[in-house]
Amino acid sequence: MHELGIVMNVLEQVDAVAAENKAEKVLKITMEVGEVSSVVPDLFLDAFNWAKKKTAFLQEAELEMIIIEGRTYCKTCGESYQTTAYGKKCPHCGSYETYLLTGDQVIIKDIAAVFGEAETPEPVPEK
């Protein structure tokens, strides 16, 4: 349910970009999803495959998710570490004076779309 809201948002934005650029259809969306973004990739993909049927340009689109590792920086000792392993507490010095460097992003990186030649009439199929 949580993922679905974000998926709808993504589909809406990409559908608009496809229409703006006069694409025929979108083949692929590439996204960057942070490990600590609270988006669960499997659920996100399920929601995507369900919701894309309701769009104009994304019926056949596939989704690629590049997972970005969560990294946290420690202000006390200046080291950084893997967020999912240690959370808020720095494993080097035990300090809680830390902040997330990367890993909370949910980004639409790019889309691959099919473009037809402008103004070319559709060929009439032979009977």
Partner: peptide, 18 residues
């Protein structure tokens, strides 16, 4: 002729809302 092109977005999903 059809062609496949890539459109770069690099846009956070939450950007419009923010």
């Amino acid at each position: 002729m059809q062609e496949v092109r890539t459109i770069l977005l690099s846009k956070s999903v939450f950007e419009d809302n923010d």
